[in-house]
Computed example of a mutant assay.
Amino acid sequence: MRLLDAVVNARMRWTAATNLRDLRPRVDDRRIPVIVTERHVVASDQDVVSVRLAAPGGGPLPAWRPGAHLDLELPSGLLRQYSLCGDPRDTRGYRIAVRRIPGGAGSAEVHDDLGVGRALAVRGPRNAFPFAAPGHGSPAARVRFVAGGIGITPILPMMRLADALGIEWTAIYTGRARATLPFLTEVEGFGPRARVRTDDRRGLPSPAELLDGVGPDTAVYCCGPAPMVAGIAAAVRGISGVELHSERFSAPPVVDGMPFEIQLSRGGEVIGVPADRSALEMLLRRRPDQPYSCRQGFCRTCKVRVLDGEPEHRDSVLTPAERAAGDLLVCVSRCAGGRLVLDL
């Protein structure tokens, strides 16, 4: 019996360890070669370009679901993340849209250098903003989509899927002016359930306006500028029975930060991190090829190993064992004092 107990206990420990390993989030780092097959300006102010990517031989690409994004390996070596905004049923092409950001090296390269026929590689797809449709994974009865500007990119496939499933849904698409709104024709093609409003005609929208008509049993999917997303999150807290799913294309502000330093390996370069900046932001200024994705502490792409120093972990995914082993997500985590020496 003692021998049997030992065998059973060993088996249970092995099973628990295996299940824990299987449940940990994985980053899909497969590199997929693609070429640019189409390119179109999709906002009349010329600042948003749509790019279609296909496999060099025209074969099928890995499947994706609404809300997913790609890591785009640009020819210069820069790595940037863009939401997939095409149709998941198109298995032979990925569509992304990129707004030109003043001073943004990645967006400038997409706009200026990615012509039709250009070869590059992508990683993914991966999804940090999945759509759980009512009746298909969500207890909600209806959906409100809220998109601000280029935030329409992950929302547009969700709208198509909700429409195809016959779900009750409405959408508000907002931006500075109609000329700045990409895919405007596609959005307006849904009819009156998709409302377009612009700041030049009606001023900045309030959370109350963007959530007008939202009540219990509603799921809100929101993507856009950080102030808009934060305002909606605050407003939703006062409405019972509402789900909130959101994504923003900028890092969250640093709260209660203290300045510290990071050092690239023992004896390597030392980089100062101000109290209101992330370690990733400062690292990218010296190492623009450093991998990253969500910038919000949940995708693990930016994970590095700490060789020395006391980390202040602010992520939501690393296990106690990983933290004890020295793992750190530089997009959100900081130093408890002084300097962190990173294995870079």
Rank of each mutant, 00 (worst) to 15 (best):
S250Q: 14
D308E: 13
V254L: 10
R266K: 13
L283V: 04
S265N: 14
L61N: 04
R80Q: 04
M282Q: 13
R237I: 08
P125F: 08
A10H: 05
V242L: 04
G58D: 09
I271R: 01
V236W: 12
C223R: 06
D5S: 07
R30D: 15
R142N: 11
T301I: 07
G149L: 05
P66E: 08
D87T: 03
S44E: 15
Q81D: 07
P182M: 14
N127L: 07
L23Y: 05
C299G: 05
F298K: 02
V214C: 00
T91W: 04
G272M: 07
P134S: 07
A16G: 08
V341P: 00
L210M: 13
M228V: 10
R323F: 06
T18D: 12
E73S: 15
P182A: 09
P207E: 02
R266A: 15
R287I: 15
G238A: 12
D199E: 11
A55G: 04
L4T: 15
P205S: 04
P62E: 03
P66H: 12
P139T: 06
R126I: 15
P88K: 05
Y221D: 14
D87P: 05
G151Q: 03
L165I: 13
A141C: 11
V27F: 06
Y94W: 12
M282F: 07
L114I: 10
D90T: 12
L61Q: 01
A171D: 07
H40R: 13
I239A: 04
R201A: 11
I262T: 00
R287P: 03
E322V: 09
G57Y: 09
L70W: 02
E186F: 09
G93L: 01
L78M: 11
V42K: 12
A105P: 00
V332F: 11
G166A: 08
V255A: 13
R323M: 12
P130M: 07
F298M: 09
S44T: 15
S250C: 14
L307T: 00
V330C: 09
S265E: 15
G166T: 10
G309R: 06
A275H: 02
D112K: 02
S107K: 01
L344G: 03
G166I: 04
M159V: 00
I172C: 06
V8G: 08
A164P: 00
R30A: 14
T153H: 03
R126E: 14
R65C: 06
R30S: 13
P62A: 07
A147Q: 11
R323H: 06
R334V: 09
P182W: 03
M258H: 08
E310Y: 05
I152L: 06
L3C: 12
T170W: 01
V98N: 04
L165F: 12
R202M: 10
G268Y: 01
A68I: 09
V51N: 07
A336D: 10
W169N: 02
W14V: 14
L74Q: 01
A230E: 15
A132Y: 11
A128V: 13
L283I: 08
G268K: 02
P259R: 12
I172N: 04
R248T: 13
T301P: 01
V236E: 10
R178L: 15
P75G: 04
P291H: 06
P205H: 14
A251M: 11
V110P: 01
I167Y: 10
L344F: 14
S265H: 13
V7L: 15
T218Q: 02
L165R: 11
G241R: 05
A171I: 06
L284P: 00
